[in-house]
Design a protein around this nucleic acid. Structure first.
Lengths: 146, 146
DNA sequence: ATAAAGTCTATAATATTAGTATAGTTTTAT
DNA sequence: ATAAAACTATACTAATATTATAGACTTTAT
């Protein structure tokens, strides 16, 4: 049940951008700054941010003084959105996926025990990731620091 | 967040063995029977059952009329136990794992937002897998069939 | 014009997954 | 004795995913 590095780095970067949105007027940061702060290989982070950009979760500005910034207020972006862009469906098996359903091997899906339990797992994970916004994460971090 | 085929097959096989435990006097089944019923490559399943045997979750009997059977009553084996044998720790990132903790990249674990959320995710998954027994799964399947 | 910054594509290196194949050994009911 | 069944071990492959790295290109502030 692992989160890939791609997913981990992407989530860290987005949380970082949410902090910047809260604390700086432009809300803009360069790849290198994020890479350094979060200890992420810069070129790898570049690909990840590009994917997030193509998914419409961040915007960017080219050229001198450019950088990345969140496409929306941090309280309108959920971890689930970020996760799905980078790591695909949340469901442990495809036959319980909401976003990418595929039939699995069971003779009868309705009475498949594994499917029922994995459906519960999917919902439990989705309930957390889809209801937690970047803003909420930042708040929680600040609370922990206090 | 995917369950590997190894994990999927192993869980299916264990649920299958739990059904047999409930419905047959010996509770014993051969690899081939399970493989056929659950559509699992037999040689792959052999490896998986061996791993479960070495972990003490199933016992086996050699020779004619032999086979595999659960090492304990189905209500004393949880999906979490099976999962961990086959797919390793439940935690999405190692720094929130109970069974296989390792530090991650965060400068301060106590105030790392990602870590907090992934801790919640880990607990949500573990709460389901560690509290659901094979017997409970079988009951649920029977209820769905009725 | 230049340098800072993102864009895009390709490729490499490594690891994991999902098996398949081989080749036996051991146990046990009949 | 024989056949059925599990046990052990290895190792090989093929595909896929992961984790990057490299380099050429484009945009923009100054």
């Amino acid at each position: 049940m692992r989160l890939s590095k791609r997913g981990e780095y992407g989530l860290r970067a987005m949380i970082s951008l949410a902090e910047v949105q809260k604390n700086s007027p432009t809300g803009m940061t360069q790849i290198r700054e994020i890479a350094q702060k979060e200890q992420i290989p810069a070129k790898f982070l570049e690909q990840i941010l590009l994917a997030l950009k193509n998914a419409g979760l961040v915007h960017s500005k080219m050229g001198v003084g450019g950088g990345y910034y969140l496409a929306k207020p941090a309280d309108e972006i959920t971890l689930g959105q970020v996760f799905r862009v980078l790591d695909g469906p949340i469901a442990p098996i495809r036959c319980v996926s909401q976003m990418a359903y595929e039939p699995c091997g069971c003779p009868d899906e309705e009475t498949c025990g594994l499917r029922m339990v994995m459906g519960d797992v999917r919902n439990a994970i989705a309930n957390i990731l889809d209801r937690t916004t970047l803003a909420a994460v930042v708040e929680r971090m600040e609370a922990a620091r206090a």
